[in-house]
Write a protein that binds this DNA or RNA. Structure first.
Lengths: 173, 173
DNA sequence: TGCAACCGATTGCAAAATGCAAGCAGAGGA
DNA sequence: TCCTCTGCTTGCATTTTGCAATCGGTTGCA
């Protein structure tokens, strides 16, 4: 996959990589949702991507160097997708994007709690998260302090909000 | 203009606002290039946007609250577009996007010097720039230290690189 | 052994978005 | 007067997207 290269502007080229409706959604689900398989990405994303679009974007992201694909040893038909360093370094951009959307757009509380946490954690939290992703996807040794993983922290916060909402909505008050 | 609202995820909603090929390019030209008129945006952007697409995106960005439009007092046919606070707060995202593109994509040296400067300047420089934009587009009083404007600094850096390249390419060496 | 569920895609087709060139009416300048 | 410039629209071809069905193969289970 070669970029159109409408211009050499960094912002323009970045948009040529993930300036469409789906590429960044896929990366979001891999980064924050831990999805690694085609079917997980297909059924797991709330936005409901079509299978042909997903296949096309995965191919494109691989050709651009954002993803790699490998056989899953546990299942001959399964492919496992991994993030490259190029994709992992999108974490700060996704954090900023989430923070901006949380301020200006009608986000749902459950889904924006993670953006809020990521914003509060700031660059140190992003770095820890990126180290975790490098460990999972690139096999890099994990030399940070143990503690709960950032992904687990985000998921716990999400579930807490969902539980609280369910409680408030329950007949028993 | 109402969002599709495929989901309430902040990242998804942000993409619904400017996750296309042109919206962010237009905002980039207004923010960094100082373009305020339709014709400036049409002819000024290196990427060559079509006039119907430009008209559509300006309308859409206005409906989403990113831009406002007003009559230009100097010319009855001219319209002047202004950034809203919502758009001005994209500056950190654009800075990150430029930094990422500079690292991972085949950017041209002239066009990436500004991203480099913005990256080196960091959040303080972004804040100064945003204050300048608020002054130009929203009429907010400018209370920062005077000095050269960030836009002037970025432009000067760009022209210095262009001049240097011309010198190196000249027959006289 | 049979069979349903699941695997990563692919196909065909309709709908929407985009790109391109030309043109519009009105305003300004000479 | 005539030419240029203003923001923006129109018609049409091309490309991209969305949707549903399907493919050949694998797996787990009865």
């Amino acid at each position: 996959m070669t970029l159109d290269r409408r211009s050499g502007c960094p912002i323009n080229l970045s948009l040529e990589v993930f300036g469409d409706r789906w590429s960044l959604i896929i990366l979001r689900d891999m980064i924050f949702g831990g999805r690694r398989h085609f079917r997980e990405l297909l059924n797991g994303s709330m936005e409901g991507i079509a299978s042909n679009i997903l296949a096309d974007r995965l191919k494109r992201l691989m050709e651009l160097g954002m993803l790699t694909k490998a056989d899953d040893p546990s299942h001959k038909q399964k492919a496992i997708y991994s993030l490259t360093e190029m994709a992992i370094t999108l974490v700060p951009i996704l954090a900023h994007l989430g923070a901006w959307g949380r301020v200006w757009l009608p986000t749902s509380e459950e889904l924006s709690i993670r953006a809020e946490l990521l914003e509060k954690g700031g660059p140190p939290m992003w770095e820890k998260f990126m180290a975790e992703l490098r460990h999972e996807h690139l096999g890099t040794p994990l030399d940070t302090a143990p503690g709960p993983s950032v992904r687990a922290t985000l998921r716990a916060a999400y579930e807490a909000v969902v539980a609280e909402k369910a409680l408030n909505a329950s007949p028993a008050g």
